[in-house]
């Protein structure tokens, strides 16, 4: 089987995805990814005209059936404390997290 997604590319993606994997998970997932990519390869054989449009959804949203964007009026959730309370750790309405690391963007 072809290995389009090498271990190096895979490890980079795992980093970007904010995941950690043990060795067995990594092996399974990389194998499945490469299998899926192979299955996708069949698409390449389909030659499409450059003017074939992109469809980001199927149903055409004509003005007649489309909802209008809501007015820019604040409609607050009636009980924001309920939302904050869902966080695993809070203090005085703030969400508590560990140290946020400083990174220099290259």
């Amino acid at each position: 089987m072809s290995e389009t997604i090498t271990r190096e590319i895979f490890d980079h993606m795992v980093e970007l995805a904010a995941l950690e994997l043990d060795e067995a998970e990594a092996e399974y997932l990389r194998t499945e990814l490469n299998k899926q990519l192979q299955a996708i390869e069949v698409l390449k054989a389909v030659k499409l005209d450059k003017d074939t449009p992109i469809a980001s959804h199927g149903v055409p949203y004509t003005p007649e059936i489309s909802a209008q964007p809501r007015k820019d009026i604040i409609d607050p959730f009636p009980n924001p404390e309920e939302i904050v309370a869902l966080s695993p750790e809070t203090e005085d309405g703030y969400l508590i997290v560990p140290d946020i690391p400083h990174e220099d963007v290259e």
Binding site: I40, L43, K44, V46, L48, T52, I54, A55, S56
Partner: peptide
């Protein structure tokens, strides 16, 4: 190569 191509194919399916 992948995503845009798939979205164009979605047009063909439609």
């Amino acid at each position: 190569q992948y995503y845009e191509h798939a979205l164009r194919l979605r047009s063909k399916i439609r």
